[in-house]
Design a binder for these strands. Structure first.
Ligand SMILES: [Zn+2]
Ligand SMILES: [Zn+2]
Ligand SMILES: [Zn+2]
Ligand SMILES: [Zn+2]
Lengths: 135, 135
DNA sequence: CGCAGTTGTGTTATTCTATTACGTATGCCA
DNA sequence: TGGCATACGTAATAGAATAACACAACTGCG
């Protein structure tokens, strides 16, 4: 479905930093992590992120102004909305995708006459591990 | 439920600008609109917005970095999640709130063990009027 | 081959968004 | 009166994203 396109050096570097990370990273955090690899300006990061997002390999978290590597198994979300559960304690992000939920949400919103083309669905709270830790 | 607290002059000014507007406004747009009323610095806007958001009178749209006056009738959303349908053509924002949808979403997310305390739900697309106009 | 079109790059500067820090004023209540 | 909470004004700074310009590499094509 979403064949991994050829990635350039910069794109590969950005993606690998995101993949080697539990939680999301901001563009400027990425920049700092990539200084040793020759990155000098924000635009180098943003351009790579842009490509990676269009390829579906990276997601942007609007409520954090940060980016995370896609964790969808075999790249599940084809057309379905993707939701994110962001733990405010440990920063971990869980990616959720479900055909049925997508359809129900679409239906709900469409009732108003609105025709959605995209959605931002981000839940904030505590992941299972952090709840256990707090108990 | 959410009795309107006493609002100060600055808070009243910010709220009235938002209420007299079809779509959302950024903090800096608000600042510009309020120069004649003596506003000089972003912080004056942000502080007022902060209070207004905590009072539930204003919402922040994460995907736009902008703010909109609450349009909930009689202040419906007490505990329920609020979703926003943002028209990318005309900028109008529709506020959606539904007990059943809230519960279903909560259920869905909770299945992973995640315990949500808040949510950002923003749909992008075209409102009914703009679809008609495009047809 | 020569050349246009596309994509990626590097650099600088600028814009837009949000917060920190510091000082002041005001009302409330012990 | 003194302490506390809330709001205010201003300046400086941090953080996020884009605009503008120039160059390199690759592709497809006449
Ligand atoms: Zn994904
Ligand atoms: Zn956690
Ligand atoms: Zn509302
Ligand atoms: Zn519209």
């Amino acid at each position: 479905m979403n064949e991994r396109p050829e990635l350039t050096r910069n794109q590969t570097l950005v993606l690998s930093k995101l993949e080697g990370q539990e939680g999301p990273l901001s563009a400027y955090q990425l920049l700092d992590l990539l200084r040793d690899d020759g990155f000098r300006a924000p635009l180098q990061v943003y351009r790579a992120l842009d490509k990676l997002m269009r390829a579906g390999l990276v997601h942007r978290l609007e409520s954090l102004n940060a980016f995370v590597a896609c964790s969808g198994h075999a790249h599940a979300h084809a057309g379905d909305v993707t939701a994110f559960a962001i733990c405010d304690q440990c920063g971990q992000v869980i990616e959720l995708s479900d055909r049925l939920v997508s359809e129900r949400l679409d239906e709900w919103v469409s009732k108003t006459g609105f025709k959605p083309t995209g959605a931002v669905l981000e839940f904030r709270g505590a992941c299972a591990a952090c709840q256990a830790r707090a108990a």
